[in-house]
Design a binder for these strands. Structure first.
Lengths: 188, 188
DNA sequence: TTGATTAAAGGACAAATGTCACAAATAAAA
DNA sequence: TTTTATTTGTGACATTTGTCCTTTAATCAA
């Protein structure tokens, strides 16, 4: 399992076994059950979570109490509340498990230490954020240029394996349409 | 003008005059006229642009030929096609000037060199990307949780000074609604 | 298993938004 | 200035999407 994180990081930068052991010593392991919150709105959220397995949703609760889903996270992805993580503010997002989930987490402080001692890792995190940025930009483009039907088809193409694991209600919330509208789309 | 970039960077990391001169030596200056393209779809886009002044739009042309605006950039902001910049692929975005615009630009290669020689700058760019990530996430949340009226009000709150400088057609394109719909919102 | 909760589909109607057309106002160019 | 584009507003109507409601199916816990 430790190897899973190593392999993940090595997609971006090369690491000797010794170096990885050093990197790994900055992480903690933590497991969560289905329905459990990893991050909860209003609390501090100083950690960035690497998902070993499982499935989570990251969402925000709007004024009228509606949930809006920003992201689904699954094996080998990272989740956090970036605002809370980087600015040390209280979380405005909720990250909750849809399945039992195991994680490696690193606190902001430990990450700073790690990057100071091993510059490569600064590069790793920087690259990771850049890729996330590209993903978010793609999502914005999809939201402003496509209707519900096309957004759903785009979702199917991007995450074909998640459809079975996530209730339609949540996919609708991710796409920014009502559950009923999603239910009426042609399921080609 | 050189000081403007220094002050901008110093909001994130401290730099001696000597260090900044070194940083600055990795940048080039380039000016553009209104209507001119900084980045054009299909071309390579190896540079990241810091805007000294002026106004630009970053957009994508959809299948049916419609323009969808991802971002407006003005003094002290950065613009690029992140995908093209980081993956060395051809640009899928257009960045075009709405006003005469002066920039400092840094190529991907020069940025890599700079970060290798002055680790602080890796931290600077990393922080910059993180803040951009937070902004994009906020935008997504706005798009999936608000109707046209509220998205427009949100835009007014976030960019009160841009409204006079940007035609409504483009604001509509940024918000993901038709020009006519935007025109009919209550302009409270 | 049984009962309770949750998820999904679909009808009926209202509200929001898009499209097309045209006219007025404004800005840019000659 | 005059001429030409561009921008903006608005009406009429079609389409999309949201809301409320009921029913059925599926899932989960005791």
């Amino acid at each position: 399992m430790k190897q899973q994180l190593k392999q993940h990081i090595e997609k971006t930068i090369a690491l000797s076994d010794r170096e990885f052991d050093f990197v790994f010593s900055h992480f903690d392991q933590k497991s969560f059950l289905k329905h459990q919150f990893i991050i909860q709105e209003g609390n501090y959220a100083h950690n960035d979570y690497f998902l070993i397995n499982g499935l989570v949703k990251s969402s925000h609760i709007g004024e009228e109490g509606k949930e809006h889903i920003l992201q689904f996270g699954t094996e080998n992805s990272w989740v956090s509340d970036p605002q809370a993580y980087h600015t040390h503010a209280k979380a405005t997002l909720n990250i909750q498990c849809l399945e039992d989930t195991q994680t490696y987490l690193i606190s902001f402080q430990e990450k700073e230490k790690l990057c100071a001692d091993l510059t490569k890792m600064e590069k790793f995190f920087s690259k990771k954020t850049s890729l996330e940025q590209i993903t978010l930009q793609r999502r914005i483009l999809c939201l402003i240029s496509n209707n519900a039907q096309n957004r759903y088809e785009d979702f199917l193409r991007q995450y074909p394996n998640l459809i079975q694991r996530i209730p339609k209600t949540m996919i609708a919330s991710y796409l920014g349409v009502s559950r009923e509208t999603l239910s009426r789309l042609s399921h080609a």
